[in-house]
Simulated scan of single mutants.
Amino acid sequence: MSRTLVIQLARLGDLVQTMPMIMALRKLSPRDTIDLLCPEPLRDLGTLIPGLDRVVGWDGARWHRWAAQATQGLRPNQREEIEQELRALCPHTYDRAFVLNQHTRAIVAGTLLAKECVGPLAHGPLSEQLTPWAAYVREIARTRRSNRIHLSDAFCGMCGLLPPGTPPRCLTPLLSPSRNLEPIGQGGGPWIGVIVGAGDPARQIPIEVWRTWIVRFLAVLPRGRVVLIGHGAECDRARDIQHAMPPSILGRIWDLTGQTTIHALAQVLARCQYVVGSDTGPLHLAAAVGTPTLGWYFARARVHETGPYGSGHRIWQAQSEDGGAVVPATWPIEPSLDVLLNTSPRAQSQWSHWTSQIDEWGTYYSEAGQSSAPPREREALWHELSPAMPV
């Protein structure tokens, strides 16, 4: 048996989108020890990912301080302090580390903690040459050209793995619901989770748009309920969304912003019939717990790269003539409500409508009204970027 460390030091959404790679690795190596190194605030999320033996939290703030101090020279005892911290994190050296970030901190962590690193660099930590998959991901991000390989599947390719072919699912959190969570999903319905914000301010759906959507939803579905989801810094957005709404509507809205741990958030998302939001971490977590999602993708978010993973998710993609960031003039309020009413979604100017599928090459999205057959270029790209892999 070998010991493997998966390193993902980015945000919540990136960690969720690492799950297909972990699933593929576990299928390939059922007897190996597979651990995860992730940011300390996301450690609880790591405990919900199946296939892992241990989750190690990375204190990014502490390591950043050490790095800043090192530029001016290490204190006499600081090297020993760092070595002790590494031994506490990982008492044993790993046989290999899969590094999923192109950031220096992740590459250094893999080099320090494992005998061999697999990831973005082709020839070790001091190399500037990217592997074919890492170069492809960087080029897509830089040029914004057409792309049909999902980021989760690119993570698999970067690690020399094929996508698992089925969407992974988070484990069910083992906790009793608190009093304010217990009613969610019980009676009435459908229960819709509304993600009020986004980590990237450019991807925040305007407050007035959310207010309009919620009022329309509660009007057309009299038994419907809304759950407002967000972290503590988004409580003001949630309050502004509810401002001046009639009491009859407010009685059908549960505001949970700033009130959920990661485990509680996963449980809330699993209790909803749908979750609506922009390209942000909780939307990907909703897909990972098995809840269908309705995504509004704009700014620089692109459905083919980071649409929710799996099948049956619906995305409205804002159109851009030059491939740059999009600030929508209209919003797909009515088309997304059509989905909840089980009617054919109407067209919306400036937006295209996509639905997700999954096959042996991973997740892909087909445009509404077009063939759902997988795009041929995906298989060709796998052969091009993974020539040594038996694909």
Rank of each mutant, 00 (worst) to 15 (best):
P308L: 15
T306E: 07
P308Q: 13
V327G: 06
T306I: 08
P335T: 11
E360N: 11
N342F: 04
Y309Q: 08
A318R: 03
Q350G: 00
P332K: 14
T355F: 02
Q357P: 00
V339G: 00
E360K: 14
G310K: 11
H313Y: 11
W331H: 05
A347F: 00
G307S: 02
G323N: 03
Q319A: 08
Y309P: 00
W354V: 04
S336A: 14
E321R: 13
D322P: 00
A325H: 03
Y309K: 11
I358Q: 12
V339A: 04
D338M: 09
I333K: 02
S352C: 02
S356F: 02
Y309T: 02
D322T: 13
D338R: 07
G307K: 12
G362T: 07
R346I: 01
A347Q: 07
S320A: 15
S336W: 09
Q317K: 08
E360G: 06
S352F: 01
W331L: 05
P308S: 14
Y309N: 08
R314V: 14
T343Q: 10
G307F: 12
S336E: 12
G323V: 02
D322E: 05
I358F: 13
P332F: 09
D338Y: 05
L341M: 12
E360A: 14
Q357V: 01
V327A: 12
P335Q: 09
H313L: 11
H353A: 02
W351S: 03
